[in-house]
Structure formats: structure tokens, C-alpha cells
């Protein structure tokens, strides 16, 4: 009997643990209800708009400008986060100093703090009469109500993605590899840049992609500090909200479907990085 069973192609390998049917069934049901059907609805509405409509709505200069703003600010913020997130993670993994645990716990603040709260707090700091803004104002440097403000908000939002992706990989680094580099004559800096940094590259890239993906779609923390000036500091999610408030569902659908495709691209990118890392280095991040 077992031979018959084991030679047959099976979708699931059998084991004695009960409850697969009900848990798997419920998982699929709930997943479909909450996530898949609503997302499919967006796809269906976008498809029923037709290619021509979708293209004309999507190529509206204001839409293109908002998409570009969302993308490049998220890109810049992710880049900042890769540099500083790397330093923060390194300091927390390798060094022991008073206050380390506090810093470590604080890194998750952007996960826990509601985005709207972050948004108004950052505005209070960087507005022309704000905590920091007032010192920059005399030099003609404006942060709030410019794209720079968006970058700052997205740095706040994206930081934990980089730190929390890189940190565990750093903890797993083998010291003997660094020692090997030293015995071969490499200075500490050479070891850091030629040995340590390259082995963190997949994790850094993943952190970058996660930060980028989150930044492109971010809304709450950005709209307060951005000033939302069309063609300058208007982000794509805000444009969706505005079109919805005008009951212009077609335009909202068009922008939404473009953004959703962008998210899928980022997701694909992350999976490609991980597949590459697994193939090349024989391990997942």
C-alpha cells in the first residue's frame, strides 16, 4: 500500500499530524477574502479600463511627475539608509557601549509609531520655524515643503528595514574569515572593505529594496512634510487619494495599478537577490 502511495505524485507528503484540511482551507479562504479578491478587483478594473485609457491616464504629466517624485525620493532615502543603517547595525553588533540596548530598541520606533504622528513631528522639526528648520532658514535651506522633506520622512520610515535585515547576517559573520584576511596581510580597513562589506552585500541590497518598496508607497508620514506642490513635491499615493475624493475612480485605478506593478517589481527584485545569494554563496541572507 505504501509503495503505491509513495510512487504516486502527491501534492502534499503525508504525516500523522492532524488539522491540515481545516487550517489550510481557512488560510486560503481568509487570504482570498481579505487580500486576493480585493487586489484582483483592482486588476480587473484596470483591465476593463482598456489599454488606451490606462495609457492616457497613466501618462498624464502630473501623474508621471508624482510617480517620479515618489520613486526618486524613496530611492534617495533607501541609499541614505543603506549607509547609515550599515553603520548603526555594525556598531550594535560589534561594539559594547552604554546605551546600546536603548539604541537597539529604538531602531524599531518607525515600525511602532503611527505614520501620521511621525509626519507631524518631522514637520514640527523641519518647518521654517521648526526646531531645526529655523536654523537652516537664514541660509535659504528649506527642508519641509520640498522634496528634501519627503526624503527625510522616508529615511525615518525605511531605517529599520535596512538595520533589521543586515543585523542578523552580521551576527552570523565568521570571525575566522576576518582573521584569515589579517594573516594574509590585509589591514583592518582592507578587511572591512574587501571581505566584510562584500559578504553583507546581499543583505544590504535586500534592505535597500525593502526600504525602497516601502518608501514608494508611503503616505502618512510624507503628506504633512511634503507641502504637496503639484509637479514638485506631490507623491503618487496622494494623487490616488485626491482622485478618489473627486470620485474619479478610473484615474485612481490607473495610478494604483501602476504602483502595484512597481511593488511587484520590487518584490521580484528581492527574490532575485536572494536566489542569487543562495546560488553564489550557498546560503540565504
Amino acid at each position: 500500500m505504501t509503495t503505491v502511495l509513495s510512487t504516486r505524485w502527491r501534492w502534499r507528503s503525508s504525516n500523522v499530524i492532524p488539522g491540515f484540511g481545516i487550517t489550510f482551507g481557512f488560510t486560503l479562504f481568509y487570504l482570498s477574502l481579505v487580500v486576493l479578491i480585493p487586489l484582483a478587483c483592482l486588476g480587473w478594473r484596470a483591465a476593463s479600463l482598456g489599454g488606451a485609457d490606462l495609457a492616457s491616464l497613466g501618462s498624464d504629466p502630473r501623474v508621471l511627475s508624482a510617480l517620479a517624485t515618489s520613486f526618486w525620493t524613496a530611492f534617495a532615502a533607501a541609499a541614505v539608509n543603506v549607509v547609515f543603517g550599515l553603520i548603526v547595525a555594525w556598531v550594535m553588533v560589534r561594539y559594547r557601549f552604554p546605551g546600546r540596548r536603548l539604541l537597539d530598541a529604538a531602531v524599531d520606533l518607525p515600525f511602532a509609531l503611527p505614520t501620521a504622528v511621525a509626519g507631524i513631528a518631522l514637520t514640527a522639526i523641519y518647518a521654517p520655524n521648526g526646531w531645526i528648520g529655523q536654523f537652516l532658514q537664514p541660509y535659504g535651506l528649506r527642508i519641509a515643503y520640498t522634496p528634501l522633506g519627503i526624503v527625510i520622512a522616508l529615511v525615518f520610515i525605511g531605517l529599520p528595514f535596512v538595520v533589521r535585515t543586515v543585523q542578523p547576517v552580521m551576527e552570523e559573520l565568521n570571525r575566522d574569515v576576518e582573521e584569515a584576511a589579517a594573516t594574509l596581510g590585509a589591514s583592518r580597513l582592507q578587511t572591512l572593505f574587501r571581505v566584510v562589506l562584500p559578504s553583507l552585500a546581499p543583505a544590504l541590497l535586500t534592505g535597500f529594496a525593502l526600504s525602497l518598496g516601502r518608501g514608494v508607497g508611503e503616505y502618512g508620514s510624507v503628506i504633512f512634510i511634503a507641502g504637496n506642490i503639484p509637479y514638485v513635491s506631490e507623491i503618487a499615493p496622494l494623487l490616488i487619494v485626491m482622485r478618489l475624493e473627486e470620485y474619479n475612480y478610473a484615474a485612481a485605478t490607473a495610478i494604483g495599478s501602476i504602483m502595484l506593478s512597481l511593488s511587484f517589481l520590487v518584490l521580484l527584485l528581492i527574490n532575485l537577490i536572494q536566489a542569487w545569494s543562495r546560488r553564489r554563496f550557498g546560503h540565504v541572507l
Binding site: N174, D176, V177, E179, A180, T183, V195, S199, A201, G282
Partner: peptide, 11 residues
């Protein structure tokens, strides 16, 4: 120096 677990640079 040759290490027990090789310590090769995997990248």
C-alpha cells in the same frame, strides 16, 4: 594560517 573551518572568502 589555515583554519579548521577553512575561512574562505565566499564572495
Amino acid at each position: 594560517f589555515v583554519f579548521q573551518h577553512y575561512a574562505l572568502f565566499r564572495h
